[in-house]
Write a protein that binds this DNA or RNA. Structure first.
Length: 523
RNA sequence: GGGCCUGUAGCUCAAUGGUUAGAGCAGGGGACUCAUAAUCCCUUGGUUGGGGGUUCGAAUCCCUCCAGGCCUACCA
């Protein structure tokens, strides 16, 4: 076990602006990392951008920019978004970084020295316009390459290959003996079937004449390395693998293996499940240092896959602007079951925010503080009251919620974790109705019961706030501030009975103003 | 063509092969007043996509069909 919990995300390609899927993955990983911080465990969260490759080179040319300039401009959009969404990462993996290049070249040299790479001539049909080789799947019904490919020539080209298929049997055995390699489990089946059919090696280079925007092979300057040995390497290069001692990068041994590498379902096969795991194996990583891949699903737009060509992408920055970061983060974490797909809907975003945060949690805080001030000048009293409903809340329901929450978070099921927290709030609202503090306040003989109810409510809300910290860092701090509690709690503070006798509560200020639907466009 | 996933209440989802298939929201009825017209209680609603099979027992396992989604398709 490494000293530090390490999470990585896929790095985003700097060819197009971020959409809701990018935001989801980074927020999900942010929540997992913040959960570790809540537990006061060391954590390192690495995310970044993939800046090389042909599409960046082409897009840059189109706009008359140098590739780096184009990539940096797009990178800035991602960085802005992460700041907006409170995504708090520790390491930033930008593949144009010199230290990354250095590690990539060291790794390539190693594999070259170990005989894992070889050069081979390939003959095929090449589209000049699209700058790519064509395979039979590009042929149309007539068995020909259509006009969309422009001029197609038969071309012979040399390239470098990685001996992928040598490791096929190892990977099959590894998948079989490591049930937690892929989360969720059904993706593991899918991967195994794909590996069974694996044949052939992996082309890892492009001749510079065709693609110059990349990292040069250290043993053959006529080529740059293609995406796999560039982008995938970020997970270890920025974690300090093969780095010089004075590089300023983290100590690799303290991070590796990652607790989970968070990726989308589209890049499990073949990129991460096959190429990446075999790359690690070929580099000499033992089986217990091949990290878990946490494979998340997609946000679809009314059932359809989101894509630029359909024009149905969702801009996360605009959503954050319209509804606030709290509502957006909550929705992204609550309304999808980790690993599965979900339908994105602004209506559901508003609904879940209003029902669960405004009406349930927010209003609970608000009414509790109001009653405490109205009946007790905001001062809590710990009493010896042993009424069954209160004993049950303190001894059973609150601890059960914390336990359920913790278990769910450890299994990356953020939606289930949030549900546990929200259910505790619902229990508190029920307690208020059942105990009717406004009636207790009228009867001096029930003063002790009133104090006990108010104390139990405040304690429960405090615990709920602690549980909400990873998903809603700002809002949780807001709740704790109104309770006059420290705003950087640990998970251990979610135990019962932290508030002392005589504790003064702050003034109630609505934290989750209800969201209204935007006016219908007048078209 | 090969593979994987999904199909359960109007919606979003739960249910190690084991009581009468549950919860939130929405809908209907009622209560309360501390509160962000919030909350609380009661309630309507299901041939678990269809059809076979295994079992004392199936939403769950097997076969098959239907619908939707995704990956992959001798590979540079």
């Amino acid at each position: 076990m490494p000293a530090c919990t390490f999470y990585t995300t896929a790095i985003d390609y700097t060819n197009a602006p971020p959409h809701i899927g990018h935001a989801y993955e980074k927020v999900l990983t942010d929540v997992l990392a913040r959960f570790e911080r809540l537990r006061r465990r060391p954590v390192y969260y690495l995310t970044g951008v993939d800046q090389h490759g042909q599409k960046v080179q082409q897009s840059a040319e189109k706009e008359g920019l140098a590739p780096l300039e184009f990539a940096e401009r797009c990178t800035a959009k991602f960085l802005d978004l992460w700041k907006t969404l409170d995504v708090q990462f520790d390491g930033w993996a930008a593949t144009t970084h010199p230290l990354h290049k250095q590690t990539v070249q060291r790794i390539l040299q190693r594999l070259f020295d170990a005989g894992q790479l070889y050069k081979q001539r390939h003959n095929g049909f090449y589209s000049v316009r699209q700058e790519q080789f064509l395979t039979d799947k590009e042929r149309n019904e007539a068995g020909e390459f259509g006009p969309e490919w422009g001029q197609v020539v038969e071309l012979e080209e040399e390239n470098w290959y990685f001996r992928l298929s040598d490791h096929r049997d190892w990977l099959l055995g590894f998948i079989d003996s490591h049930p937690h390699f892929i989360v969720p489990a059904f993706r593991r089946t899918e991967l195994r079937n794909a590996v069974e059919k694996l044949s052939g090696d992996l082309c890892i280079s492009r001749p510079k004449a065709r693609l110059s925007w990349g990292i040069e092979l250290p043993f053959d300057s006529g080529f740059v390395t293609y995406v796999w040995f560039d982008a995938l390497i970020n997970y270890i290069s920025f974690a300090g693998y093969l780095a010089d001692p004075d590089s300023g990068l983290p100590e690799f041994r303290s991070l590796w293996p990652a607790r989970a590498q968070v990726i989308g379902k589209d890049i499990l096969i073949p990129a991460h499940g096959i190429y990446w795991s075999i790359m690690l194996h070929a580099l000499g990583f033992p089986d217990d240092e091949i990290p878990t891949l946490l494979v998340h699903g997609w946000w679809n737009i009314s059932g359809a896959k989101m894509s630029k060509s359909l024009g149905n992408t969702v801009d996360p920055a605009a959503l954050a602007e319209r509804y606030g970061v709290t509502a957006l983060r909550y929705y992204l974490m609550a309304d999808i079951s980790t690993g599965r797909d979900a339908d994105f809907s602004e209506e559901r975003l508003r609904m879940r925010f209003n029902d669960e945060l405004a009406n349930n949690v927010g209003n609970l805080l608000n009414r509790t503080l109001n009653m405490a001030h109205r009946y007790r000048q905001g001062v809590l009293r710990r009493t010896g009251c042993q009424d069954a409903d209160l004993v049950s809340l303190a001894g059973t329901e609150a601890p059960a919620a914390v336990a359920e929450y913790t278990k769910a978070m450890e299994q990356f099921e953020v939606d289930a974790a949030l549900e546990a927290a929200v259910r505790l709030a619902r229990t508190c609202n029920q307690l208020i109705e059942a105990s009717a503090p406004w009636k207790l306040a009228k009867d001096p003989t029930l003063a002790e019961r009133l104090d006990a109810v108010l104390y139990h409510l405040a304690e429960s809300i405090r615990i709920i706030a602690v549980l909400l910290v990873p998903v809603l860092p700002e809002a949780a701090r807001g709740i704790l501030a109104q309770l006059n509690c420290p705003t950087d709690p640990a998970l251990s503070d979610a135990g019962w009975g932290v508030l002392p006798d005589g504790h003064s509560l702050g003034a109630p200020v609505p934290l989750f103003p209800r969201l209204e639907a935007p006016p219908a466009p007048a078209d």
